[in-house]
């Protein structure tokens, strides 16, 4: 099992939901798409690379051949996949503290969803419904989501600066260079492998070293 790839953690959660109430969740998701401000809380958290919610109707599990038994389910299911930075606790807690009401709308009427506040029942619910990842790949294990976003700014600023200022007189160049550094203060940073924050990340590191040997 490998829920961790560098600085990213892969979370998979599957929860049942009454098939006749899924339209409410779909409505909330649609509203979130149409009114991006509703996702501001998630953007502010700034620890997610990509996340998604998928609703599988109770007759919606892929059936590819008549030889495959047909699923007979009482419930529809909601899948939640996230790629985030930090530890499991940091992530789940930040949801509870930053966007509890939005979270409760997304999981509205999922069977036995305890709501995101208080914390312990919410932890229990996620842990109960979480599935471990067998293989997790991250194109930039040394980078957090914020690194990817700030790198985009650094690249643009560097190209613009080079075009505008590199051939100026040395003094004017220095003035512009200092301005560039000032503007990019929040975007610099030396990216390195993630520190060992848990036994699982230690295991991943050990496994990686074994494969490299």
């Amino acid at each position: 099992m490998s829920n961790i790839a560098g600085k990213a953690y892969a979370m998979n959660v599957i929860t049942p939901i009454r098939w006749y109430t899924t339209w409410t969740n779909k409505l909330f998701f649609k509203a979130a798409l149409l009114i991006p401000e509703t996702l501001k809380g998630l953007l502010t958290l700034s620890l997610i690379h990509y996340a998604r919610w998928v609703i599988i109707p109770r007759d919606g599990f892929p059936r590819l051949d008549p030889s495959q038994p047909k699923e007979e389910l009482h419930y529809a299911y909601m899948l939640f996949f996230s790629n985030f930075n930090g530890s499991w606790d940091q992530y789940v807690d930040s949801f509870t503290f930053a966007i509890p009401s939005g979270l409760d709308l997304f999981w509205k009427w999922n069977i036995r969803y305890p709501k995101s506040v208080p914390l312990t029942p919410f932890h229990d619910y996620i842990r109960h419904n979480q599935i471990d990842t067998a293989h997790y790949y991250n194109a930039y294990p040394m980078a957090a989501s914020n690194d990817v976003k700030s790198a985009q700014k650094v690249k643009k600023a560097l190209i613009d600066f080079n075009a505008k200022s590199s051939d100026k007189s040395a003094d004017d160049f220095l003035k512009d260079y200092h301005m560039l550094l000032n503007n990019l203060q929040h975007d610099f940073g030396d990216m390195k492998p993630t520190p060992i924050v848990s036994l699982s990340s230690y295991e991943v590191k050990k496994r990686y070293e074994q494969t490299k040997a």
Binding site: F29, L33, Y50, W53
Partner: peptide
Amino acid sequence: CQLDASLFFNGST
């Protein structure tokens, strides 16, 4: 085998 996402959140680029 593909399932559509109801919501895809992009917190990166």
